[in-house]
Design a protein around this nucleic acid. Sequence first.
RNA 1: CGGGGUGUAGCGCAGCCUGGUAGCGCAUCUGGUUUGGGACCAGAAGGUCGUGAGUUCGAAUCCCACCACCCCGACCA
Length: 566
Amino acid sequence: MLASRIFINTLREAPAEAEIASHRLMLRAGYIEPLAAGIFNWQPLGLRVVQKIAGIVREEMNAAGAAEVLMPAVQPAELWHASGRWQVYGKELLRLQDRHERDYCVGPTHEEVVVDLVRRHVKSWRQLPLNLYQIQTKFRDEIRPRYGVMRAREFIMKDAYSFDRDAAGALASYQAMREAYSRIFDRIGLEYCIVAADSGAIGGSQSEEFLVLAASGEALLARAAAGYVNLDQVPCAAPDAKRPAAGEEMKKVDTPGVASIEELRGFLQQPPPPERCVKTMVAVGEKGMAAVLLAGADQLNLAKAGQHPAIGAGARLAEEAEVREAVGAGFGSLGPVGMPLPVVADLRLQPCADFACGANEDGKHLLGVNFGRDCPEPDYADLRLAAEGDAGADGKPLELRRGIEVGHIFYLGTKYSDAFKAVYESEDSGAQTMEMGCYGIGVTRIVAAAIEQGHDEHGVVLPAAIAPFEAAVLPLGHEEEVAKAARALYEALRAAGVDVLLDDRGLRAGRAFSDLDLVGVPHRLVVSKRSLAENATEYKPRTGGEARLLPLADAPAEIAKLVAAA
RNA sequence: CGGGGUGUAGCGCAGCCUGGUAGCGCAUCUGGUUUGGGACCAGAAGGUCGUGAGUUCGAAUCCCACCACCCCGACCA
């Protein structure tokens, strides 16, 4: 590839809107360009990275026995009515009508389409198992797209769907996908982990997430014995302290405008320590609504709240209006005394006496409150989100990391095959419903995740497997012999199987160097009068090494070896 | 959807408070000198100041409405 011909649009300064490193660098390196909120043009350099990732995904999916298809981006509403998701999916589903006013959506996922396809063709047990996948553009109308392609509305995803005769077969397919995914992320060359996903709402289903470790990740992880787990799945032990006797009388104080524990402590002359300031929130699940109590500095773990019988699965925080209707006071003034809802307290509050809390009256708080005396003893449960510094299961302090979700595998059971009557004639027991799994990889998100993990002050640092080019040949100087030798080296590298860029733009040295650094080319080969005097090229890796001379004759094989070893 | 912020040349920004010829750096174009980590000199081009409606002799600047984008939150597996 010639640099002069492939539309390299690097920026010296990053556009102001970019917050995180990957977004900034993808704009600066000319990988992407925004077109609308969460919608991007992929320029040639960025697209090359996308295609390299997609290529690896495709190879491993094929190797795992999956067959590639391509399903439409626009899907008829009837399919979504059949699964019931036309009602359920909400505003994330971009809906539209054609000229005949028939309803369609832009596909955020393809369970409906693929089940419809498979049920019409698969009739016999002999046709199973089957795994169909595609690499295709999806659209999810995110409430708030952000961080460039990390959380975009339009994005490229690999989605696969497995169909098996029975649950055992489906779990084998699941396992095969798990292994294929591991090979994919190994080959891409990122530091990643696999964690169990919260399966509470689905019940009994198996689901795991693949996360790339990066400081800017949205998912919180904790190191566990084997790898990592989602932070919200880390249990918190009960404190072993005993509750001291009540030492204060309960009294009500005016606290106008105080809406948080921090503000309360700032407002009071002699505030109790945070562990004796009780924070009250209201959670709603499928079983009902309850007040949840936590020590002031702790965070609520909604997944844990959902396990309490008074709340139930799918727990969320209540809206202020719901709270006002149920309790008569708004956020910031809630507390256990006179609370009409069931009260569940975190284990850490068990030894808590003489605490401060809201009075269930706007602008008022109570001090010197004691369970058992001033209000009923609450039900205690593990409710808080584990935090940095907690003791882990092995007694050592919990180690926290963040991750970016780039893959998700899911055992589905018969949820969709039931809805679509995807049945086959079994070998011995008549008509059977197919068992399904679905498996996603966020291809474009991986580009951002890889850059989050790989960058420095000069720009993008990508593994050779997914860099836009594996190597670049850069002629310096205007001598005829330099241009000729560079061209020859470029051709030799191509012949050796290296994906190489010839930077024939004739830029000044400094500009060319910083451009190649910014764009993320892992291996740089400079050809100049100086190097030709030694019959050599000056080789420099993007990171972790000094420039050194390589004989021109050896360079192609040497670089091919370095690329293969990466 | 709630809160905050920003829209001025391709990019980064100043000007707005206190109304009166639209500016700076980088990028671009021309000529020249340069040529190993974003060169220098000289010249040039580039703007419906987000859109609309007002106030005013006069609006980038003041008022109102709208739109777009960004950030925080809520939402989502």
